[in-house]
Design a protein around this nucleic acid. Sequence first.
DNA 1: CAATAAATACCGACTAGTTGGTATTTTTAA
DNA 2: TTAAAAATACCAACTAGTCGGTATTTATTG
Lengths: 202, 202
Amino acid sequence: MGKRASNTQERILATAEQIILCKGFSGTSIDEIIDKAAITKGGFFYHFEGKVDLARRLILRYLEQDAKLFGDLFEQADQLSEDPLQQLLIFLKLFANAIERLEETHPGCLVAGLTYENQQFDEEIRELIRAGVTSWRELILRRLEAVAKQRPSKLAVELTELADMFTTCTEGGLLLARIFNDNRHIVTQLLNYRTHLRLLFE
Amino acid sequence: MGKRASNTQERILATAEQIILCKGFSGTSIDEIIDKAAITKGGFFYHFEGKVDLARRLILRYLEQDAKLFGDLFEQADQLSEDPLQQLLIFLKLFANAIERLEETHPGCLVAGLTYENQQFDEEIRELIRAGVTSWRELILRRLEAVAKQRPSKLAVELTELADMFTTCTEGGLLLARIFNDNRHIVTQLLNYRTHLRLLFE
DNA sequence: CAATAAATACCGACTAGTTGGTATTTTTAA
DNA sequence: TTAAAAATACCAACTAGTCGGTATTTATTG
């Protein structure tokens, strides 16, 4: 695949994601995507097998970008402290800060968006979504295990559920941000989660 | 409007909600709704001005049912304790129990589902969605204010954000439940919120 | 109490436009 | 010159919505 093609594909993917996050997957037509991406039908179907293939590639791209962001933020956090709890708390702060810096309203999470119309997809795509959420769970769970190893928690908690609470607060915040058109909701809900961890372990 | 008509409308609304929660709003065609609801095109358009009118009426119905459920649960909770914190904690437990009793996977929240494709709706519908989330916020906020009036919180928190955390945990739990096909996620995320309140105020 | 008028509830064929997708041709760059 | 990349033209199925008409209630009145 030449550079020309990879540019085109990325342009299609970026355009499609933007529209789909606004209107939903079914609410977005290929015609609109190719129009905004400045390509034609033939071009689109050269690069993608069909609309479902587009969804698949969008999720893969989204999860990749996401893994990179979280990796970077944890790398920063790990350099700022040696304490597992502090590292996690710093990560949450960095994540919240990154969102706070956005100028426009956060477009939302592709994983959540597609989940709410997932009955029209095949199992492969639902599995990709599941894998994404599982990866977030595992990422936080590993950190929580390190925290729990050296500190008792004030109340008995299942660490997996506590790890899922990260996804819960992020997705909940994204929803509120979208509904009220204000990114600060993402920040506050993430910081609620941070406070929860402090109350449990500090 | 005779009884015959009100039955028909309710049948259409219930059918439509079910399909829309599975496939999304755009992913659901009127043809499929009328097919499953055993009515015809003409019948549908006699009762609804169009597809957007259907969405409007679905949200109104959803928020009504929801207000009734929360009202009932708080009434129960208020009878079981005089303490504001306990009342709120009991409410959360009752809500979680109600969901745990469901046999099938919870179909999800219409408000969240429509939010993820809200760009295709007019402002009226977005406002209805906003009003719904605001009503949840106010409902919990009033309780939190009563709690805060008689107890200091362990850490400084904005009560509005803490009230929104109820929506966050509910919606986050619903999302996890759908992705992993397991209602227990709703329960655990609600109980995480409950734990958070206990850690803050108990 | 009937006969009838009028409103309500519903039907199903139809249309104009949109949808995802294909087959064929042209352009581009190595 | 040739293979990849993109454009053009097209199609069949589906879409939301319309329309003329019919069945069923409900209201009116002689």
